[in-house]
Design a protein around this nucleic acid. Structure first.
Lengths: 176, 176
DNA sequence: TGGTTTGTTCATTTTTTTCTGGACAGTTTG
DNA sequence: CAAACTGTCCAGAAAAAAATGAACAAACCA
């Protein structure tokens, strides 16, 4: 085995000086939220930010997040902006410090609501508009073709309606 | 304006010879399914395949899909494999033709079920395992830290349980 | 006012995902 | 059995998404 000459520095040198390495708990939390966030189609960096804030007992300024997560200023700024826009994170006043300090919003229901309204609903809406257009197109077909196509469009519409009906329920379920 | 020398060929030359351009209906359907499929985190090509099959009144061999969608053999093969694995598409026997012929499965509930069981459930499961680990870690903290951390983990667990509880309901909702 | 600090934006670079096309394996056919 | 056909797989190319870092704007300070 090669001798550890650099007195026990790990493989990935942590950002030079003042950034304490992530604790086990922090790593687990970050991992968990990376997975969750990915599921919603958002970038990993956003999961990292939220994960660290989630387990932090104190509000953290952007700089600390950058340092501890080894993340660029750009990513941190953009990620926090996104999280703010979903209400997943908010800033609190820190006495004698000009910087914004961030805390994770513990009640995720606003996050869920905003996500559903902002990402899911629009898709369904545009889908319905498109279905209307398709049904329009089908009327010009020969009776035979129309038969089949109309049937399929009806099925598709059925699914869309199911989706539409589900969202409000989903919201209610999450909010309670 | 530059003269149209190539007698009215459109900007994107359609695959040389025998591939009829997509009809308006087909384009709408493909667009719609690309959106839906993207929402589930799958590549565009998969949406194209399913969209075209969805409005096709007849079963189509892979070759036709490749030609009409201007898609490589590799993408078509992989995409159909994925769709098959989710039960979104199946092959039917075509007399006097050695090639597999594909039709879209109109009942999307199997697709939904497989997606939930294959993609969502595992995430939630691993999340719960991770939560257990985190709670384990927290026990080693000082009482003060433990107080805060334990509280947050409890909230997180609450959300995970909500998610767990929702999936079966979601399934039932979709299947009916 | 000139110098700091804090945070945003965006062109570029890096990383990740998706697509492509050919080698290959399995079948069928003559 | 060789030749033709069908479909899978995978290394490399292309495209898309995300991260970086520096220029910039805004707010504060002395």
């Amino acid at each position: 085995m090669p001798a550890e000459t650099e007195l026990d520095s790990p493989v990935h040198a942590p950002a030079s000086a003042g950034a304490p390495a992530l604790s086990e708990l922090e790593i687990e939390a970050i991992d968990l939220f990376i997975g969750l966030i990915r599921l919603l189609g958002m970038p990993k960096s956003v999961g990292e930010l939220y994960g660290l804030l989630f387990v932090s007992p104190v509000a953290l300024p952007m700089e600390t997040l950058m340092d501890r997560l080894n993340m660029s200023k750009g990513s941190a700024s953009q990620g926090l902006k996104l999280l703010r826009s979903f209400g997943a994170v908010k800033t609190v006043y820190a006495p004698a410090d000009r910087r914004d300090h961030y805390v994770a919003e513990m009640d995720l229901s606003r996050f869920a609501t905003n996500f559903i309204k902002g990402e899911l609903q629009p898709h369904l809406d545009s889908g319905v508009r498109r279905l209307d257009r398709m049904e329009q197109l089908v009327t010009k077909f020969s009776p035979e073709e129309r038969e089949i196509a109309a049937n399929r469009l009806a099925r598709l519409r059925h699914w869309h309606e199911k989706g539409q009906a589900m969202l409000p329920w989903l919201l209610k379920f999450l909010v309670v």
